[in-house]
Amino acid sequence: MAAQPGQQLSLRPAISVVMPMRNAARWLPVLLAALVREWSTGFELIAIDDGSTDASAAVLKRLCAQWPSERWTLLNGGGEGVSAARNRGVRQSRAKVIAFIDADDRPMPGRLAGPLQMLQNNQQLSHVHGGWWRCDANGCLQHPVRPWQEGAGFTWSRFMEHKAVLPSAWTVRRDAFLAVGGFDASIRHSEDVDLLLRLAAAKHRGAWIEQELVRYRIHSSNASARLQPQLNGLLAVMEKHLKTLGTRHEAWVREQRYSTTTWAVWQAWQAGDVDFALKLLSQALQDCPYPLVRRPVHLIEVMARSSARIGELFDRSELLSSRFWQQAEPILLAR
């Protein structure tokens, strides 16, 4: 018979759910209700309050009051940032498998059971990753993200070519996480990209679970709203890892710089930050492999493809008549 809330967990938990939170009181009831649906997986929840000012800790204590004490732990993260909070949670964990979840996201059915079973059945894997649904602030589904359909993978080179990672859909063996040093607490953005690249460099194998495991909320207070630091952080992480390659890989390195930076151009354009998009475009063209006549066409292709990936409509005519394009075209065609 499956264990129920209120029953004891006598053995080591099968999986530790590490959840950093900052001002997440409004999201916690839905998240915890979703976790309870997977009570029989034998999880433990380790929540890390990273400097909340909205009584998140009090809300969590109230919601978990009927849980056995060994099924949940609340740590004080001290406001040191999400990487330090996650690392602290992993160090406190008792299970051999770690499932990350951010407090503003919502686990979908199978979020814990699916990855746990896959890792148990495939001992050669160090981590597994599922897809996710992009959602609005109310949790309403908008568009599924399924990176495996675009060839994303977990070797160092394949991940560098398609840097698809979302911590809330990511499950990692504890020993592999600790072996590479966990998240780099000095990195404020794209710390997940950095960690996955280090796992790949150390030959830890990963695999896709081809289903959506979490609802990823897009709202004004999450990290994705801090556009410029986020994109600059991603480019810095990419550059740090590309520098580990020798000069014989120079053409491939330049291709990765160009493709990632043009994707960042789309991100800035889509967010309405025209000046930043133009700055990134000038930066991207330093590594552009295409002749002048091909550059505008390729940028339009990137923007159309990137929009489709998140379910956004792309209007080519609207782009070509925009202030962004009026300033971008001369940059694209400059020798």
Rank of each mutant, 00 (worst) to 15 (best):
P5L: 01
P5T: 01
Q7A: 08
L9K: 06
S10M: 14
L11W: 02
V18W: 07
M19Q: 13
R26D: 06
V30Y: 13
L31K: 05
A34W: 08
R37Y: 04
E38R: 07
W39I: 01
W39D: 00
S40N: 02
F43I: 12
E44R: 00
D49G: 14
S56L: 08
A57Q: 12
A58S: 14
L60V: 05
L63D: 13
C64R: 07
W67I: 04
G77C: 10
G78S: 05
G81F: 01
G81I: 11
R91A: 12
Q92N: 02
K96Y: 04
G110D: 09
G110V: 04
G114E: 10
Q117K: 07
N121H: 11
L125G: 06
Q142H: 11
R146W: 01
G151Y: 08
G153R: 10
R158S: 15
S168R: 12
W170V: 02
A179Y: 01
A185K: 05
I187G: 03
S190V: 04
E191Y: 02
V193D: 07
D194A: 14
L195A: 01
R217Y: 13
S220T: 07
R226M: 10
Q228P: 10
P229E: 07
N232S: 10
L234R: 11
L242I: 03
T244W: 05
E250H: 03
A251L: 12
W252N: 10
E255K: 05
Y258C: 11
T262V: 14
F276T: 00
F276P: 02
A284T: 02
L292R: 03
R294H: 09
V297Q: 02
M303F: 03
A304F: 02
A308D: 08
L313E: 12
R316C: 05
R316M: 04
E318G: 00
L320P: 03
S322V: 00
Q326F: 15
Q327I: 00
L332K: 04
L333C: 11
